[in-house]
Design a protein around this nucleic acid. Structure first.
Lengths: 144, 144
DNA sequence: TATTTTTTGCAAATGATTCGCATTTTTATT
DNA sequence: AATAAAAATGCGAATCATTTGCAAAAAATA
């Protein structure tokens, strides 16, 4: 049953609801592999789409679970929402204060800690946001 | 030398640079014990100060290390910056999706993990932001 | 092919935060 | 204490990321 859904129905559904805009958003996010905000994506599309359309597309993709997002306050470009392709396992990122890029931390360092917290505080945790801020390897090596 | 600074100079400096506005901001944040955003504080001051003055005061307090802040996207009130009194040890918070309040998690569950990450990725971590989202104990107990 | 639904572009609206500027308050100088 | 200089405030306007209304264009359905 679930196989049928994944193999057969899901692709059709996907095909049906993917407009050129949304298709392109997924392409860009897949190609770049790092969290991107709306204006970054807008530049990348080379004006193929209006910024409002890009926002609408990103929101559609998020509510339909193709992408996920988080807000981040970059010292260079301010508070903005960043989008990434949604994968099996969620990812966190570290943000470099020098070059202002994100680097993925594939494995979540909170795996075990979360259930401890749930138990200790009687809190049901649905999501968690973790972002590191610092100096990335590249900037640490090149700058003295 | 450092003792002289802490015992003598710091209080004078504190006294000198604390305006009524900034004094009140610290009072409110101390009294409430939870992260508060500017408009929440504004309501709490009962119109004693202009909202712009409150923002200026909060920014002053943050750059002078009296308070720290983070941006959070509350599903009820949107993306806003929240401020807390800066303490010896930093705190993280969990945010309830039902009652939209924050609960502190006094001990940071990342203590050890961070140095591992630094080593593995060659990244120098200056700060980290962690927020949990879910259902708080109170809402979990009262709602069926 | 006609009709309904969805998506898009454009311009205007929104909402949190910041800024300019004139006024008031505080601090430093005589 | 009186005055000059510096900092803080209130108000309104500006900013910037994001959203929204609306009419036109494109896609889906009958």
């Amino acid at each position: 049953m679930i196989r049928i859904f994944i193999d057969y129905l899901l692709p059709i559904f996907y095909f049906k609801c993917m407009t050129k805009n949304r298709e392109k958003l997924l392409m860009i996010l897949n190609a770049n592999k790092v969290p991107m905000n709306a204006s970054l994506i807008y530049e990348d599309t080379k004006d193929s789409f209006d910024l409002a359309t890009i926002y609408r597309g990103l929101n559609y993709l998020e509510t339909n679970n193709y992408v996920s997002s988080f807000v981040f306050d970059c010292k260079e470009s301010g508070v903005q929402r960043y989008f990434t392709i949604k994968e099996e396992s969620h990812k966190h990122y570290m943000h470099c204060e020098k070059c202002h890029t994100f680097t993925a931390i594939p494995l979540c360092p909170l795996k075990n800690a979360l259930s401890d917290i749930e138990e200790e505080y009687g809190f049901i945790v649905d999501e968690h946001y973790l972002t590191l801020r610092g100096i990335c390897r590249h900037c640490a090596e090149t700058t003295l």
